[in-house]
Simulated scan of single mutants.
Amino acid sequence: MATKRMTQSFSDQCMALVKALRAETPDCVASGVVDMSTGMLLSYETVDSHPPEVFDLLAGATLDLFQGRTVVMIEDVFKERRGVNNDQHYFQEILVNSDHLTHLFIRMNDRQDVVAVAVCRKSVNVGMLFAQARRAVKEFAGM
């Protein structure tokens, strides 16, 4: 499968990652991939229908979560205090709980400008969510 992924376009890899997240993450109702350099949702899959504005807002919110002005300032302070001298972002995963859903955002290791998103029912086992989502993302590490 690794050879097949190397020959796939980036767009095909994003769609495959979204499908893997939806299939392998427990209680998953939606998944997506956000390009942080453009703030665009590259691919998504959901069990519900939503207005297009919701998906635009998801991409923008993801960008704010990981690269908002205050978040970048916090990352810079942490890196300075810990003597880290690279361009890698400090925050790699963010978990957000709403009234009915749990949202997990995972930054790709090899492409820090790409974030995978899994949205699950609130009843999800968070440990299993992290384990399965990390496994799915790791398979696409070379995106």
Rank of each mutant, 00 (worst) to 15 (best):
T102I: 02
R121A: 02
D56A: 14
N86F: 00
Y90I: 03
T7N: 10
A61C: 13
R121P: 00
G32R: 06
I106P: 00
L129M: 07
A59C: 15
A23N: 14
K138S: 10
Q88W: 03
T25V: 13
I106D: 00
V84G: 02
Q8T: 06
G127F: 06
A131R: 08
G60H: 03
R135L: 05
L58V: 11
V71Y: 04
E75C: 10
V115E: 09
T70G: 00
E80L: 10
F140V: 01
D35L: 12
L101F: 15
T7G: 01
E53W: 01
C14I: 01
T70W: 15
L129K: 07
K79F: 00
S9M: 05
L65A: 12
A23R: 11
H89D: 14
Q88G: 12
S98A: 10
C28Y: 12
L129I: 03
L17P: 04
M143S: 07
A116T: 02
K19T: 14
G32M: 05
V84W: 01
P52I: 06
V18Y: 06
T38D: 10
H89M: 13
L17K: 06
Y90Q: 09
L41R: 14
P52F: 14
V54N: 07
A136G: 10
T62W: 14
V72N: 11
A131Y: 05
Y44C: 06
I74E: 08
D48E: 15
L129F: 03
F140Y: 01
F78W: 09
A20S: 09
R121K: 11
K122F: 03
G127Q: 04
K19C: 07
S98R: 02
S11L: 08
R107V: 08
E24F: 05
